[in-house]
Amino acid sequence: MKLTVNGTEHTLDVEPEMPLLWVLRDELKITGPKYGCGIAQCGACTVHVDGSAVRSCSITVGDVDGDVTTIEGLGTPDSLHAVQAAWVAHQVAQCGYCQSGQIMQAASFLDLNSEPTDEDIDNAMSANLCRCGTYPRIREAVKTAAKTLNEA
C-alpha cells in the first residue's frame, strides 16, 4: 500500500484496517499527531487529508483517499505556517500535548473560512480538547492567523 505523507511517498506493509494514526506514529515514526482518546473525542490526532482536517485515529489507512499532511509538514522552522507563527506569538502551548491537533484543525478551518467570526472560531475548535485550558489563547491566535492569511 502507498501513502503520501508530507510530500513523501511511503510503501507500507500494514492491514488496511489499521487506523491512520497508528500508521503515522508506529510505522512511519511521525509522532507530531498525538493519541488522546482513539474515538474522535479529543482532536489530538488531527492531520490533513488533501487539506481537510481529519481525526487520524478514526480513519483506517485503507480509507485514506488523498495526501496526508501532519504538523511536521505544515510549515518549517524557517518558514512557519501563519497558524504556527500566531501560536508562537501568543505563546499558546502549555504542556503541548493537544497543540499539534489544535494547529492542524485551525489551519484547515481558516482555509475553508477565511473571515471567521468569534462564534465560528469557537464552533470550529470546540471538538479539540485542551486539558491545560489554553482556550482563550487559542481563540486569539486563530484571529491573528486569520488576519495574517487575509493580508497575504
Partner: peptide
C-alpha cells in the same frame, strides 16, 4: 464547512 466539517470525524 463553515466551522468543523462533519467528515473530520465521520469519514471512511
Amino acid at each position: 464547512v463553515e466551522t468543523l466539517e462533519c467528515a473530520t470525524c465521520h469519514v471512511g
